[in-house]
């Protein structure tokens, strides 16, 4: 699956860039995120409690930052393990472009899901992934709009 989107962020590009690498900010943006820790310069470890309708599963996610081209673009590589529910693997290509006081953020997310969740619930996989990605970037934009960064 592949999907893209964009958000207009109420901040200058460098601030946006920095915030995107701040585990506290990332935690606030990721729905159901219980913890987000930096494990190395370019790596975060997260625990997420995802609720998708009847499914409630706790996932461990390892997030790598790759293809760094500050402050314009980078790639997040996400490896998710959810025990009995299955696993996920995804990449998000993120680009920033300055619009003066604001910054346009565009993203393209690709990924796949495996394991029981995908064997039983394949009809929901695309919608659920789309929702998680869109919500992440929408939350990010909202933080700035509400001056919470």
């Amino acid at each position: 699956m592949e999907q893209s989107g964009e958000q207009l962020i109420q901040a200058i590009q460098l601030d946006v860039w920095n915030a995107l690498h701040d585990p506290e900010v990332l935690k606030k943006c990721l729905d159901g995120c219980l913890s987000m820790e930096r494990v190395s310069d370019h790596q975060f470890q997260a625990v997420v409690s995802a609720k998708i309708g009847p499914v409630r599963a706790k996932f461990n996610a390892l997030i790598h930052v790759e293809n760094l081209a500050p402050p314009d673009s980078y790639t997040l590589v996400v490896d998710v393990k959810g025990g009995v529910a299955g696993f996920g693997k995804g990449t998000a290509d993120i680009s920033l472009s300055s619009m003066g006081d604001t910054t346009n953020l565009t993203y393209t997310v690709k990924g796949h899901v495996g394991g029981r969740l995908a064997q039983i619930g394949s009809r929901l996989i695309v919608s659920a992934s789309r929702k998680m990605a869109d919500s992440f970037f929408a939350n990010f934009a909202k933080l700035w709009a509400e001056n919470q960064v």
Binding site: G86, K89, H112, V113, G114, G115, R116, A118, Q119, I120, S122
Partner: peptide
């Protein structure tokens, strides 16, 4: 993923 989508 090589996952069987039609698993149920």
């Amino acid at each position: 993923s090589g996952n069987l989508i039609t698993g149920s």
